[in-house]
Amino acid sequence: MSEHIVKSYEQELAILDSKISQMGGLAEQLVGEAFDALASHNPARARATVASDATIDLIHRELEEQVILMIARRQPLANDLRQVISVLKVAGELERVGDLAKNVAKRAQTVSGETHPKGLLTGLQHMTDLASRQLKDVLDAYAARDAERAIAVWHQDEKLDAVYNSVFRELLTYMMEDPRNIGLCTHLLFVAKNLERIGDHTTNIAETVNYMTRGALPEGERPKGDITSTTLVSGPMR
């Protein structure tokens, strides 16, 4: 890509990218730490995680301001326009990812006194790993302007949905087995849902990356594996 004649414009665009990668790094870290806090029953760590979401929000606001300013000053066109708009959208998604991770950490604080059934955490661990990897992949795709990789992430979300489906069923089963589990399991269900949502946001980012590099949205319907909204498990009491 040849350089802009106006050097400061080039620099501003570079700053946008670096801020996105900074924000992405933070979001990734937040997701991991939130789950670690949950798994290790460590409320202090969970509190620290909640607090660090503020940094993501701050960067998000900064990006928004800069994008508005650039639209006003540079009137970007073509790929520059797509980049600037994409930055705005990706930053929004990452901010949501941060919020979801913060929610996981909050729930980790709440349930830190309880003992989790072992199998449940394995499922959530798997989800966290998948979500984190997706996030990392899509951010790499963004940085490399790699639409192929972004589309791959987009397709991978199905896996996360599948794990979510099994975790969902598992939790329902636990709750049905023993009503005392309901409190804990509800929180864990939300944690699972949050992780699933993070996956959805990464697919959104992937779509944006694809738009940014190709000027078009991915072709076809996004493969969706989350069937929980249509799942109804009947109680064992019947």
Binding site: S2, E3, I5, V6, L77, A78, R82, R214, G215, A216
Partner: peptide, 19 residues
């Protein structure tokens, strides 16, 4: 043309990259 030009020269021109 102004959001997604197909030719690189067009893109370079409208984004101010001609050197």
């Amino acid at each position: 043309i102004f959001t997604n030009p197909t030719d690189k020269r067009t893109q370079d021109y409208i984004t101010g990259r001609f050197g």
